[in-house]
Computed example of a mutant assay.
Amino acid sequence: MKISSLGLQAFTQTAATLNVTQAAKDLGLTQSALSQRLSLLESELEVTLFIREPRGLKLTEAGQRLLRFATLNQKIEEELLFELKGHSQELAGTIRLGGYSSVLRSVIVPALAPFLRKNPKVHIDFQSYEMFELPEVLKTARAELIVTDYKMNKQNIREEVLGFEEFVVVESTKYDSPKDLYLDHGPEDNATEEFFRAQSKSPGFYRRSFMGDVYGIIDGVEAGLGRAVMSHHLVTASNKIKQVKGYASYKRPVTLHYFEQPFYSRLMMRVLEELKAKAPDYLKI
């Protein structure tokens, strides 16, 4: 049995948009024609690929597996065509890498920057997400690699710990900050809660204020708006922030995740090598 190329094309475009109307428009098809191709593909594979929910389409587990297959095939084809055209010694192509904003900007981008400068035909699509969004980003093939501050421990997903973020309590060196007010990224940010949970002595009641992202937190601390629990490597160079002593060490693993697969492109292997070699340097205190 062979998967229909037209069906696979209809599927991948629909999976990319999760919108039948938009996918049909992108492919120059009527919505009816696209739906027919998807229905035929599901019949051939004897699986359901999408679930219709009030907010739109959602990939089933079978759909997620097919999307990873389609993405892998596309990468293999791109690499083969590039090599056949006489570029076997060069690297080219795109890798999509998702991560949370602080580590993406302070660790992942600088770790890969020298590699990207040396290989101008390589493109890394850096994507910033909320921490809780990242597992779904990987499952739905919106990124080939994701970076989280915890281990997912999921079957068929490989994990590489790039280093550890050590968290500390910080406050302004210039202003007298409220000692019961802690600045966080947003309501889903649990760094402060988990930090104090790991301490032998809890501070008791404290208030929270949200600053949008980790760099907003740093600005807020510098301005004396409150204290914060921060990754130490982000604030060591600032003379406007000081560490509040008296807390036990608390660390989280900066972890790279990607699916196990029978083949990895040369580009994927090189990106993994670069991250494992260079990222730890940016996490050192």
Rank of each mutant, 00 (worst) to 15 (best):
K2V: 07
L6K: 06
G7N: 02
A10E: 00
A15T: 05
A15F: 12
A15S: 12
L18T: 06
Q31G: 14
Q31E: 15
L34A: 05
L41G: 00
E42Y: 07
E42F: 08
E44D: 13
E44I: 10
L45D: 06
L49M: 06
I51R: 10
I51Y: 05
R52V: 08
E53W: 14
L57Q: 10
L59N: 05
L59W: 08
T60W: 06
A62Q: 11
L66D: 03
L66C: 04
T71H: 05
I76C: 07
L80V: 00
F82M: 14
E83N: 14
L84H: 11
K85T: 08
K85F: 08
S88R: 08
Q89N: 14
E90R: 12
A92P: 08
T94S: 04
I95T: 03
L97I: 05
S101Y: 05
S102F: 02
L104T: 04
P110N: 07
A111F: 01
R117D: 14
R117I: 13
I124F: 05
Q127V: 12
Q127Y: 08
M131N: 07
E136Q: 14
L138Q: 03
K139L: 09
A141T: 04
Y150A: 06
N153T: 04
N156W: 10
I157D: 04
R158F: 09
E159D: 02
E159G: 06
G163F: 09
V169Y: 06
V169L: 12
P178M: 03
Y182R: 03
H185Y: 15
G186H: 13
E188K: 10
A191L: 12
E193C: 08
E193P: 04
F196Y: 15
R197E: 15
S200V: 02
P203C: 02
P203D: 00
P203A: 00
G204S: 12
Y206R: 10
F210S: 10
G212P: 15
D213V: 03
D219R: 04
R227W: 04
A228K: 00
V229H: 00
M230V: 13
L234P: 04
T236F: 15
I241E: 01
Q243A: 09
K245N: 13
K245Q: 14
G246I: 14
A248G: 09
S249W: 08
K251D: 09
R252Y: 02
T255M: 01
F263I: 14
S265I: 05
M268K: 06
M269D: 02
L272T: 03
K276H: 04
A277D: 07
P280R: 09
I285P: 11
